[in-house]
Amino acid sequence: MHGFHGVTVSQIVAESGTSKGGFYHHFQSKDELLYVIHDYFISYVLTKAKEADSSSKNPTEKLQKIIQSFVKVFHLYKPHISVFYQESIYLKPEYTEEIKKKRDSYKKLIFKCLEEGKESGEFRSEVPVDITGMTILGMVNWTYKWYQPGGEKTIEDIGNIFVDLILNSLLTEQAKQKKEYQSFFLKSDINQDQI
């Protein structure tokens, strides 16, 4: 592997079966290509988070939708994410700034949801929004390191596990009992009648 810094546009077009003209029709440079690779997946999660923010009835449902779409991105855009995390140090400052704006917008939506959950009394009041938000971002982002398509768990299974872990730690005991949230939690494989 050449890595982003070592690869030429000629090698990119040869490997992708296109032409230099085709490449430069879509991208001004390798730098723009690297930016677009990131923009695909950050735009997806940001759009999904905005949809969850505007369409959900309450913060718990909103957070469940945000986490599910966040986890799903590691399946939909696995090659993009791998390239970005390995090569992002080569991004030019103007592209880095654009990415930072979208990432900040995404982070703010998560923080807003956590604030709303605390204000509504559904999320535990003693859990700080900033640390909780950064924990969710860090925990889910690390998926890119270990997720393998075709593994034992589907991306939907993994999303359900994340939702269960996060909501079980965030929701008040009273909120956990709400009927409409029961589908957000994993079901035990043990038949309670056999205990």
Results as ranks from 00 to 15, higher is better:
Asn168Gln: 15
Asn168Trp: 08
Leu171Gln: 14
Leu171Lys: 07
Ile166Val: 14
Met139Ala: 13
Met134Trp: 11
Gly159Asp: 10
Tyr147Met: 06
Thr172Ser: 12
Gly138Ala: 09
Gln177Pro: 06
Lys178Gly: 07
Thr135Val: 11
Ile155Ala: 02
Gly159Cys: 04
Gln177Ala: 15
Lys178Glu: 15
Glu180Val: 07
Ile158Asp: 01
Gly151Val: 00
Ile166Gln: 07
Phe162Thr: 02
Tyr147Gln: 03
Ile136Glu: 06
Tyr144Pro: 01
Met139Leu: 15
Gln177Met: 12
Gly138Arg: 08
Gly159Gln: 11
Leu137Ile: 15
Glu180Tyr: 05
Leu170Arg: 01
Val163Ile: 14
Glu152Trp: 05
Ile158Arg: 02
Thr143Val: 12
Asn160Leu: 04
Gly151Trp: 00
Lys145Ser: 08
Asn168Asp: 11
Tyr144Gln: 13
Asn141Lys: 00
Asp164Gly: 03
Gly133Pro: 02
Leu137Met: 14
Leu167His: 02
Asp164Phe: 04
Ile136Leu: 08
Thr154Trp: 00
Trp142Tyr: 14
Ile136Phe: 04
Ala175Glu: 10
Asn168Thr: 10
Leu170Tyr: 01
Met134Arg: 14
Ser169Leu: 13
Leu165Phe: 13
Asn160Gln: 12
Trp142Cys: 09
Asp157Ser: 09
Ser169Ile: 02
Ile155His: 00
Ile166Trp: 09
Phe162Trp: 05
Gln174Val: 07
Leu170His: 01
Met139Trp: 14
Ile161Gln: 15
Ile136Gln: 05
Ile158Thr: 06
Met139Arg: 12
Val163Lys: 07
Lys179Ser: 14
Val163Pro: 04
Glu180Cys: 05
Glu156Lys: 11
Glu173Ser: 07
Gln148Leu: 12
Glu156Asn: 11
Ala175Arg: 06
Glu152Gln: 14
Met134Ser: 15
Trp142Thr: 13
Lys145Trp: 01
Pro149Ile: 00
Glu156Val: 08
Val163Asn: 09
Gln148Thr: 11
Leu170Ser: 02
Gln148Pro: 01
Leu165Gln: 12
Leu165Gly: 13
Lys176Gly: 04
Lys178Asn: 12
Glu156Ala: 12
Gly159Ser: 12
Ser169Trp: 08
Gly151Lys: 00
Ala175Thr: 03
Asp157Ala: 06
Asp157Trp: 04
Pro149Tyr: 03
Gly138Asp: 09
Gly133Ala: 08
Lys145Ile: 02
Gly138Lys: 10
Thr143Phe: 05
Ser169Arg: 12
Gly151Ser: 13
Thr172Tyr: 12
Ser169Asp: 11
Lys176His: 06
Tyr147Val: 02
Lys179Tyr: 11
Ile155Val: 03
Trp146Ser: 03
Met134Val: 05
Gln177His: 11
Gln177Ser: 15
Leu170Asp: 02
